[in-house]
Design a protein around this nucleic acid. Structure first.
Lengths: 183, 183
DNA sequence: GTATATGCAAACTATTTGCTGCCAC
DNA sequence: GTGGCAGCAAATAGTTTGCATATAC
């Protein structure tokens, strides 16, 4: 999640493969996002926000901490099962919803119909390859300041940002079997 | 949809109330978005893209053209009924999906669990009030050039952009009945 | 001890699909 | 004429909820 490199002159930081941002939580339950949110790990955040750490939540937190993709609820469930058999899908849904409300997680919709999640411990955006579904994370510091300024102008305090670019790789084509063929 | 004004020094153009962007279409079916997309009206776009103009589609197109909010599928259906009783929800779903694939519409997820739609005839972004669900449209020309440059750097042609700011109005509070109280 | 969490199964909501007949081009 | 489009109803996918029990603090 943290392998960065420069690309072009846009202060661009590439971060990881496939990602999600703030989703379908009752909007006003969301916790405002501090521009300088400290980098607690997920479990510590849970404790700070008064959540009970059950074995199920340990498993879910571990899955989320270890994930460098952006798992769907179903994927979180499947992975959590490896750490704890005593867990059911409803619990994963409930837990994830609570995590979102507490500002621990963000959900994202990448156009697949399924919500996907990632820890809310750093702010970044997504470039989605429309042909393969691959997601590249990036961040642009200057850009975020601009957006905060815009919100301020309009009388709003920023709670969260969501920026996605959907694009086609130059030179991409599908082969006869419909599989992705890079250039 | 076109009442613009300046706000601050951010080259900001405020456009309308409540809005959605590119949604759950099989990603690779989306048509690349030209930076200089001409302002055809929706029906003309349909014809250009080889779609048959049935009475049902006339009704749907009319609803979409007239809407200055960002209706859900259900809302499009209800409004279209006023123009044509011979229409069913499945048709609205099918039509909207085709419109998305043809690059005529974009879908947006504002965190309510329901997709919402708007014509894709101008590019703009959304500031969502997390307390009330209100949506303000805005656009930032400089910003879009920046994002296109980023995508180019990474070897991608931009198909569509999605930018949402979720924010809280300064001074907003709920009254005892849970209704919104402006400052 | 008690408020919170959990499992299970049923309920819900939004969306998609199979099929048969129709109509825009 | 014919391929795309429509209606209808049934199916599906993802997510939520009621309720009785268990457990973290």
């Amino acid at each position: 999640m943290d392998a960065r490199r420069k690309a072009g002159d846009a202060m661009l930081a590439i971060m990881s493969a496939p990602a999600v941002i703030n989703g379908d939580v009752p909007l006003s339950d969301r916790v405002p996002l501090s521009p300088d949110l400290p980098r607690h790990d997920v479990e510590q955040l849970c404790l700070e926000r008064g959540l009970r750490m059950t074995p199920q939540r340990h498993a879910i937190v571990r899955v989320l901490s270890e994930a460098d993709d952006h798992p769907s609820v179903e994927q979180v469930y499947q992975r959590a099962l490896a750490y704890n058999q005593q867990i059911c899908l409803a619990t994963v849904y409930r837990t994830i919803r609570i995590f979102e409300q507490k500002g621990i997680l963000q959900s994202r919709d990448f156009g697949t119909g399924r919500a996907r999640y990632e820890p809310l411990d750093h702010e970044h955006h997504h470039l989605v390859d429309v042909d393969t579904g691959d997601v590249v994370e990036f961040s642009i510091a200057a850009h975020e300041h601009l957006l905060r300024a815009i919100a301020e102008d309009l009388g709003f305090q920023v709670v969260s940002l969501r920026l996605e670019i959907f694009g086609k790789r130059y030179g991409f084509q599908r082969n006869s079997a419909g599989e992705a063929d890079g250039l």
